[in-house]
Nucleic acid binder design. Structure first.
Length: 407
RNA sequence: CUGGGUGUGGCGCAGUUGGUAGCGCGCGACUUUUGGGAAGUCGAGGCCGCUGGUUCAAGUCCAGUCACCCAGACCA
């Protein structure tokens, strides 16, 4: 991408409304634009990061046989009424709207009901199971208090996966499988070492669930963990009973702030029962389908990663999700000529700061702010060595590398 | 939702006891500069969140309303 061709501009100062690193830096660097509290646009660079995260998730899920689909945002109240979740008393974060004919609709805050209803068209026999289907979808939740940049929004991108099984045992082993896949996803996006499966409340679904919590100062959750972090539990389930279940004593636990980046539930028949999703077994006996659901807040994850890696100069992206690998800056006529050639050969790899009339200092500052893994500078100085200068964003270390290595 | 705070050019802010707005950055043009956010000259840009009220006169006072921020509560 050539910066001269982008409508986006970096900002020296973020709006004072952005009080977190992720909100302020993503705004300044031109990744996001705020519409309203908890409602953001993703600009070209931000979209690329989102897409890169999605690709990693997609790869990992497809690898274990999950199928991707895309469901509707507008929700028919009918299946939700069968589980009691259309009522504002039960679920108080609905955005609702209506048809011109007067009928009521909801904007999906999640998709357990519609996907269970959908599966009724396709699940008849034990031969049809198991099924696992996921989507990347914009969810709407009328949060009383949106905050922390893109960490808690009213409109956000979520990956939601649902699995359907013939027995609780099959659900159990699938759940364990997803747990491992999630670890792998969080490793690949660069936060594996500070992200842990965490015992949490099952909410209205079940006694316990697992959250994936990333240790983070601005995280909204408080977690307790032991030394090697093999046991992590959310404050909301910090009771004597739970500590006994897990076999830990209070004095063995430390506390930290954390952000929930994923959550997995064994729903059992919580939804399949009221929505009447059944199958016939080998003996032609009708049974209720067992179900699990597994979420990752994709846009939140982007914010968490920004927050985790950012330094005082700006963003620092892990290479796996960076919008581009290289930030290209040319100095002098010869430098520009060489940079143009380099860019032409492989435009996908470079964010090329070819803006005219800027001093290099500004370009360097913007490169630090935007946070691509490596900055490449081409000038008379480097060309004299038939080289380019490569600076690692994270360590700040510079090296000359032969120009020929890039062709 | 409860408590506190804030709304003034794109962004950050200042506006004394009421007398129809100013600074910095950014933006545009030109000149000189050019390996870490340059300098000069000229210039554009605001019915002060919105509505109503008090007053000869409201950015300033009063009431209402909306939005945003923080803390808490909530969070499938």
């Amino acid at each position: 991408m050539k910066m001269s061709q982008s409508f986006v501009k970096t900002l020296r100062q973020a709006s004072s409304e952005e009080t977190t690193k992720n909100g302020a830096l993503l705004t300044r660097a031109g990744y996001i634009h705020k519409e309203m509290a908890g409602i953001y646009d993703f600009l070209p660079l931000g979209l690329k990061v989102l897409e890169n995260i999605k690709s990693i998730i997609r790869e990992e899920l497809n690898q274990i046989g999950c199928e991707e689909l895309l469901m509707s945002t507008l929700q028919n109240p009918e299946p939700w009424e069968k589980t009691g979740r259309f009522s504002n008393q039960q679920v108080d974060i609905w955005f609702k709207t209506e048809l011109s004919s007067g009928g009521e609709l909801g904007l999906a805050p999640t998709h357990e009901e519609p996907i269970t209803a959908l599966m009724k068209s396709y699940v008849k026999s034990y031969k049809d199971l198991p099924i696992s289907a996921y989507q990347f979808q914009t969810k709407f939740r009328n949060e009383k208090r949106a905050k922390s940049g893109i960490l808690r929004g009213r409109e956000f991108l979520m990956k939601d996966l649902y699995s359907f099984h013939t027995t609780p045992e099959e659900l159990e082993s699938y759940y364990d499988k997803i747990m491992k896949v999630y670890q792998s996803i969080f490793n690949r996006v660069g936060i594996g070492d500070i992200t842990f499966p965490c015992f949490a409340s099952g909410g209205i679904f079940s006694k316990y669930s697992h959250e994936f919590q990333t240790l983070l100062d601005v995280g909204e959750d408080t977690v307790y963990y032991n030394q090697d972090k093999s046991i992590v539990l959310n404050k909301e389930v910090y009771t004597e009973e739970v500590l006994n279940d897990l076999g830990v004593k209070p004095e063995e636990l430390q506390t930290a702030n954390a952000a929930e980046v994923g959550n997995i539930f064994k729903l059992q028949t919580k939804f399949t029962d009221p929505l009447d999703l059944k199958f016939s077994d080998e003996n032609n006996v009708e049974k209720v389908v067992y179900m699990g659901c597994y979420g990752i807040g994709v846009s939140r994850l982007m914010g968490v990663i920004a927050e985790v890696y950012a330094d005082d100069k700006g963003l620092v992206w892990p290479e796996s999700i960076a919008p581009f690998k290289y930030h290209l800056i040319a100095i002098g006529d010869e430098g520009i000529k060489t940079a143009n050639e380099l860019y032409r050969k492989n435009p996908e790899s470079f964010l090329y700061d070819n803006r005219e009339g800027l001093r290099v200092g500004e370009k360097f500052a913007d490169a630090d702010l935007i946070g691509l893994p490596q900055r490449i500078v081409i000038s008379d100085k480097t060309l004299a060595e038939k080289s380019v200068e490569i600076t690692d964003r994270k360590t700040g270390k510079s090296d000359l590398q032969l120009l020929s290595d890039f062709s």
